[in-house]
């Protein structure tokens, strides 16, 4: 309720409330110092309103009527104090003395002097000119205010434009930063990939090195085997004048197999060189068969390498030429006294 009454203070001082509302405002203000201050401020503002009215010069008649009324109110007091008029003498009447002028009449007479009037009018003209000058200054200042307001508006527009451009640039910077971050991430990924590739390359280089070592080792082994073979061949007491060779073709069990049997009748040894024979499992071996008629004698056993190649020196207690044929069969590990497996190579000796 107090807030509502304080909302009425402006209308109250202007005189726009009903009697009941005015009473409510006055009762509230009497009890509320804050409201009393607000009312005082409202009064101060409202006190300026009468000055919006154009000042007007009262007519002489109006002034005269007012002061006549005042004089009339004052006259009873003046009449009580006035001295008694003396009685006229019997002798010839003298000219009555002129009435003493009132203060008002004295003042009016004095201020109606031409000089004073001229000075007053001149001063009035000067002050009027001065007021016009002030009015011009006020107009000029108002124009300045308007110009400054327009400038301010223009500056604000420029500021808003720059702020908008700043926002756009900021957004663009953000985009570029995001793109830059993306590129950095890609570079990081590429760096990781590169590191992985380098590691893989190192591994491959190591494998290549290991392979090279293995190759070197194998080559050495081959050289060694070749040397051994040469040694073996050199140790073979073959009489080249009677040495002859027979071919042992593969049977139906190993049609791809073949062998050469180089026979030296003098030493009764033969060199078997096989080719195209599959490797056998660990529990089986190839065995040489010396065949005579329907009987046979088993001789040395051998294995082939991964290429299916093998070399074997065959010895016999009997002359090899006494046999009819030579064969190779598959036997259990360690060989057999009698053939148990299939014959994979077979050829005549003679």
């Amino acid at each position: 309720m107090n807030e509502q009454i304080e909302d009425l203070l402006a209308v109250y001082v202007l005189g726009g409330l009903s009697a009941e509302e005015e009473a409510a405002v006055e009762a509230h203000v009497a009890q509320n110092p804050h409201a009393a201050r607000l009312l005082e401020e409202a009064y101060a503002a409202a006190a300026l309103l009468p000055y919006t009215a154009q000042p007007l010069e009262p007519s002489a008649a109006a002034e005269a009527a007012l002061f006549a009324r005042i004089e009339a109110r004052s006259q009873p007091q003046t009449a009580l104090k006035a001295p008694a008029v003396p009685a006229a003498p019997a002798v010839k009447a003298t000219r009555p003395a002129p009435a003493k002028p009132t203060v008002w009449e004295t003042l009016r007479h004095f201020f109606s002097l031409p000089l004073v009037t001229a000075v007053g009018l001149g001063t009035a003209v000067l002050l009027f000119i001065w007021s016009l000058s002030l009015n011009q200054q006020v107009r000029g200042l108002n124009q300045d205010v308007q110009q400054l307001t327009a400038d301010n508006s223009s500056l604000r527009t420029n500021f808003d434009t720059l702020a908008s451009e700043n926002l756009s640039l900021t957004a663009r910077v953000s985009e570029l930063q995001a793109a830059n971050q993306t590129y950095e991430n890609q570079v990081d990924e590429m760096a990781q990939t590169n590191a992985q590739l380098i590691a893989t390359n190192h591994e491959l280089e190591a494998e290549v090195d290991e392979t090279a070592v293995t190759q070197t080792t194998l080559e050495a082994q081959i050289t060694e085997l070749q040397n051994e073979l040469d040694s073996v061949l050199a140790a073979i007491p073959f009489d080249s004048s009677q040495v002859y060779a027979v071919t042992l073709p593969g049977t139906e069990d190993q049609p791809g197999a073949s062998a050469e049997l180089v026979i030296d009748p003098v030493s009764n040894t033969a060199l078997l060189i096989v080719d195209g024979m599959p490797e056998l499992p660990q529990d089986a071996v190839y065995q040489v068969l010396l065949i005579r008629g329907t009987e046979h004698e088993t001789a040395e056993t051998f294995r082939v390498d991964t290429q299916g190649e093998g070399v074997l020196l065959v010895h016999s207690t009997e002359p090899l030429q006494s046999f009819d044929a030579v064969g190779v069969s598959i036997e259990p590990e360690g060989g057999s006294v009698q053939r148990t497996g299939d014959i994979v190579l077979l050829g005549n000796i003679n």
Partner: peptide, 29 residues
């Protein structure tokens, strides 16, 4: 502005008051 009656200034103070009133009127108006 229309001045309804001829100004009748009693003295310099009267003129000054009238000028001040006129200026005040213009400001508030």
């Amino acid at each position: 502005d229309h001045v309804e009656a001829t100004p009748h200034y009693q003295d310099d103070h009267d003129v000054a008051d009238a000028a001040l009133l006129l200026l005040r009127h213009k400001q508030v108006h």
